[in-house]
Design a protein around this nucleic acid. Structure first.
Lengths: 248, 248
DNA sequence: CCGGGTCTTTGACCCAAATCAATGTCGCCT
DNA sequence: AGGCGACATTGATTTGGGTCAAAGACCCGG
């Protein structure tokens, strides 16, 4: 008996599929429900890619570069769909930033069963490309940007992806620690902290406790991020909002 | 009249599609044939993602981090399929490393027309994921690895992707300059050169002219790359070799 | 086969971020 | 409420790779 749960939500909300239909049932059979708490690893198949739907919460996807060196390659938030690679040159681990609920699927089998449904394949392709574009931007940041630029860019990205309070000085609540931010930006925790201090002293941000950040001056923050196109922030992904035209 | 050419090769070889069939004709209409020489940019639509099939040659995909800072996010070789992102926080440019022939498509329209063909969508999804996994490994390298580890890992990756001579000391012919390697690894050209010298003095590689590199000691090279799993090299992507099972 | 421009290598020095080392503070749990 | 452990900040020092500068090697065209 397959384990349903957030799987139904996933199929309906993301792909517009009736979980009761044949395709829904077939995909549902592959689902595994997972619940993790802060810091807990989601065990994934080391031999094959895992497809993950994050129903609620937040996770980080990190790679082991060596025993004491971790690199976070992506953060995910409620509603995100992404894949965890099989082990190759690096071992990847998916870890909860807070209490999270997710559904996992063996990617290859999911694709096999979903192949005939253009709507699903299209949605998966679009999301894969969004992840790729984000990862490329991350590569640019890691390869070419200074510590200050990376931290400013990170705050802008989080402002886009997290629910920020409205108004000219939006406030965000970071679910990850300074250490996580450092591992994501290829910086040490002390460097991240110093950059936060610099931005605070410049009046560009303010901090509240460990996780609260007020973005007091967005234009100046974008300037500090040193993007190619100043005053630009990473665009929200534009999912396919309609069924693709079917070519007979 | 659509411009055919390498497009037919693309459709047949990659997706097993008869270019004369209706779907082949519809996709062929979207194709643009491009021929570039070394150093020449392939103009892509700044407003939308471009899907590219590289028929022959080699290209680099780079991003402008600012006027004088470039980051190469990927190299491509004959047969590769990939996408060039629309302009967002960084401007991406596709440039020939040597004389190259390619076919470009507007991605969104291509996906719309190809959506009903599970074979095509599956192939695109697999390739997108391969690009994503490579990019994630790049992020790990850029964020956590030393200059020596990055250069060693680069040589191993090129050994896998380029046609290397057989034998215990394979030889490869790098189509990119030291400057390109530096821009790909987030290092300056002088640093790349120094690492090549170190590897040569350690007897791990030998160089012949500007582009020839003999990998004299692969195990030691893998060790220098500092991978999580020593003696591992990036695996060749395993494309879908059969039509996916269709769920009715 | 020779000349010249570009690409590469090598050397000396410098700086941004890492490392080492305390000190400070948040927030959870009793 | 109070105390403790993890997390964050700040300061002093080190260092890997960047920067600046110059010499050397490759290779293409004439």
């Amino acid at each position: 008996m397959p384990n349903f749960g957030s799987c139904n939500v996933f199929l309906r909300a993301t792909f517009g599929i009736d979980p009761g239909a044949e395709i829904g049932r077939q995909l549902g059979e592959l689902a595994t429900q997972v619940h993790v708490i802060r810091g807990q690893e989601v065990k994934t198949d080391p031999a094959d890619t895992t497809l993950v739907f994050l129903a609620s919460g937040a996770t980080k996807l990190g790679a082991l570069a060596s025993r004491e060196r971790h690199q976070i390659v992506a953060f995910h938030f409620g509603g995100d769909i992404f894949t965890v690679p099989a082990v190759s040159v690096h071992r990847y681990m998916l870890i909860g930033l807070c209490e999270s609920t997710l559904t996992t699927f063996p990617a290859r089998e999911f694709y096999d069963r979903a192949a005939s449904n253009p709507w699903i394949m299209r949605a998966l392709l679009e999301r894969s490309q969004t992840a790729l574009f984000r990862c490329r931007d991350k590569a640019v940041n890691l390869g070419q940007k200074s510590a200050g630029e990376r931290v400013a860019g990170f705050l802008l990205a989080m402002w886009e992806r997290l629910d920020a309070s409205e108004g000219p000085s939006p406030m965000i609540d970071l679910p990850m620690s300074r250490g996580d931010i450092g591992e994501s930006l290829g910086l040490k925790i002390e460097t991240v902290s110093r950059q936060f201090t610099k931005l605070r002293e410049a009046g560009i941000i303010d901090t509240h406790g460990r996780s609260g950040v007020s973005l007091l001056d967005l234009p100046r923050l974008a300037e500090q991020a040193g993007y190619y196109d100043r005053n630009t922030v990473p665009p929200r992904p534009e999912w396919v909002e309609r069924k693709p035209e079917l070519v007979p």
